[in-house]
Design a protein around this nucleic acid. Structure first.
Length: 277
DNA sequence: CCACAGGACGGCT
DNA sequence: AGCCGTCCTGTG
């Protein structure tokens, strides 16, 4: 067990539950079990301390600080967004301390391909099915967990196998990108350094990845904050609170107003919206 | 049993 | 360029 002193605003609960990640497991004591790449962690806040335990203690502090982006201060981004759109003021005050989680690129790609035309519960279910079948089993606090498999582990998985994991018609999308990765036709590392527009186009060359999915991948795995993933929820908010209708108009508004922090603005809007119906 | 919710694709204009 | 039927699973 390690304890990390929180120096900058951090809201663990909202950060975990606001829709960035799917494979987290709330515990009875209010803590979360979360599967991060090659380990399972348990996290909870105790005043200004983040308490973390894991089945794998090495580099735990570094891994957790990086995962929750604890080293970055979001206050200048927040100031920028409020200056651009004062309607965001209450959302940002409400969500202060919401962090952008840094996720594993491969898992993020699979997560969001599965997310297309799908509900949160089904997405989590499919991911857990895949992990249980093809990922490494880990015992943690007497509970069984499964790490998410890498693309090499999934190279032989057939369309029928994926269907059994309840991914539905997205089976062929998963197989296509996993084959490409195993044939070294895609380099997951290069997206970190690509310009957002170029990276979006490159991701969308893959079947099953459209504008929304590509934006989510860049936002959650590659820290590209200038994307604006437009889903039905965003469309509703834009219509209701901003009287803007249509993807094209929404995108133009977001680019003009939120600019390089568009993706963060969405997180604040969403987190505020879902807690204040 | 039917309606609906949730993005991307592909065929059509 | 834009519109729309289709894909699968789960819920109400």
């Amino acid at each position: 067990m390690i304890k990390i002193k929180i120096e900058k605003p951090f809201r663990l609960n909202d950060t975990v539950t606001c829709g960035q990640i799917f494979r987290f497991f709330p515990q009875d004591d209010g803590s979360f079990d979360i599967i991060i790449k090659d380990r399972v962690i348990n996290v909870r806040m105790d005043k200004d301390l983040l308490c973390v335990s894991s089945n794998k203690e090495d580099n735990l502090k570094e891994v957790v600080e990086n995962y929750f982006d604890l080293g970055n201060d979001y206050s200048s981004m927040n100031d920028f967004l409020i200056k651009q759109d004062d309607k965001l003021t209450s959302a940002i005050e409400f969500s202060n301390g919401l962090k952008m989680i840094k996720q594993d690129p491969f898992e993020t790609i699979i997560e969001y391909i599965i997310s297309a035309n799908n509900g949160v519960y089904q997405i989590a279910n499919a991911l857990n099915n895949i992990a249980k079948k093809y990922g490494k089993k880990v015992m943690f606090n007497n509970k069984e967990y499964y790490l998410f498999p890498g693309y090499k582990d999934l190279s032989k998985v057939t369309l029928e196998d994926f269907r059994k994991c309840k991914v539905g018609f997205r089976d062929k999308y998963l197989k296509a990108i996993i084959d490409k990765l195993n044939n070294n036709e895609i380099n997951l590392e290069e997206f970190y350094n690509l310009d957002t527009k170029v990276a979006l186009d490159k991701l969308m060359e893959n079947i099953g990845i459209g504008p929304k999915v590509a934006s989510c991948i860049l936002l959650f795995a590659y820290q590209k904050y200038d994307v604006f993933p437009i889903d039905t929820w965003v469309k509703k908010v834009m219509k209701k609170d901003y009287e803007i209708i249509g993807e094209k108009n929404i995108r133009a508004f977001a680019t003009k107003t939120y600019g390089k922090y568009s993706g963060i603005a969405i997180q604040y809007l969403f987190n505020y919206g879902r807690n204040n119906k």
